[in-house]
Structures are given as structure tokens and as C-alpha cells.
Simulated assay, not measured.
Amino acid sequence: MGYGDKELITFQKRRLRNSILIMLAAVPPSLLINKLWFFSAIPAFLYIWYSSYAKAKREYKAFRFNKQILFSRFMRLVMPYLKEKHNTNYGVFKRLHKRLDEKSELKNLLKL
């Protein structure tokens, strides 16, 4: 996904800020309407906290799944070339360069 420590810290701060804001927004009306509703702020806080975590986890799993699909597709392309005799890795990658359409695959291939 390409996220570093800075993005992770920003995400956690935004997640905490949103959860606290929802909790603070739920407290005054709950105190005015019914004192027992005050405790509804805690589940609201937990719900917002967990839902943002679950969303990030789903996105990461989808990203990881797509990377695995790309790698398996790359392996299916490269295996026949590698099994041929008198082939160098450079020659194989040069021929694969023409067949790859995904930009991230091309970048990774050029790094090799």
C-alpha cells in the first residue's frame, strides 16, 4: 500500500479524534434527555473506533489479495521462459517487459 509511519500515525490520530467527537456529541443530548442515555456515548465511541479499524483492515486485505494475484500471474508468465534452455534472466525479463500491462509490475520488473 505504500504507507509509512507518518500516514499510520495520521490515521490513528484521525480515528481517535473522530471517536472522541462522536462521544462528545452524544453526551450533552443524553444528559438532557435521560441520564441513562449517557452510557450510550461509550458504545458509540467503541463503534466508531472499531469501524474505522475494520475498514482499514478490509482495504489492506484487498490490497494484499491483489498483490498475490499479480504475483501468481507474473509467475505463470515467467515460468515457461525460465524453463527454456540457454536463457538468461535478463533475456527473460526483457521479453516479459513487452507482455506486462500493470504499471506496478513493470516498475518492480525494472528494479530487478
Rank of each mutant, 00 (worst) to 15 (best):
S30V: 05
F63V: 07
V27A: 08
K83I: 02
W49P: 05
A54Q: 04
K103F: 13
K111A: 15
F11D: 01
N66R: 07
V27S: 06
L32Y: 04
K111C: 08
M79D: 06
L109A: 09
N108R: 14
L96Q: 11
Y47S: 14
Y47V: 14
F39E: 02
L110T: 10
S104A: 15
N87S: 13
R76M: 11
R15M: 10
R76C: 07
H97V: 06
F71V: 10
R95V: 12
I22H: 00
K103Q: 15
E59W: 06
K35G: 07
N108S: 13
E102A: 13
E105M: 14
A41Q: 02
L82P: 00
M1V: 07
I22R: 00
V92N: 12
L77G: 04
L31F: 10
P28E: 03
L77D: 03
Y47M: 13
E105H: 09
F45L: 08
K13T: 09
Y81M: 01
L106A: 07
A56W: 01
F45D: 04
E84M: 07
S104I: 15
P80Q: 01
L70I: 09
L21S: 01
M23I: 01
M75L: 09
N89V: 15
I48C: 12
Q68W: 10
E7F: 00
L106W: 08
Q12M: 09
A41D: 00
S30T: 06
R95C: 08
G4C: 05
N66Y: 09
L8H: 01
N89D: 08
K13W: 08
N108P: 05
A26M: 13
L110A: 12
N87R: 15
L21T: 00
K61M: 12
K83G: 01
M23G: 03
K98E: 13
K98F: 11
I69A: 11
L46Q: 10
A25M: 02
A54P: 01
N66S: 08
A62S: 12
F38T: 02
K85D: 15
P28S: 05
R64C: 04
D5F: 07
L16S: 10
L77F: 04
K107P: 06
A26G: 08
L112W: 11
V78K: 06
F71P: 04
A26K: 03
T10A: 03
E7Q: 01
R15P: 07
A25I: 00
M1Q: 09
I48S: 13
K13E: 09
L16F: 15
V78R: 08
L31E: 05
V78G: 04
N34K: 07
A62F: 09
G4N: 07
S19I: 03
E105I: 12
S72R: 08
T88P: 11
I42P: 02
I9M: 02
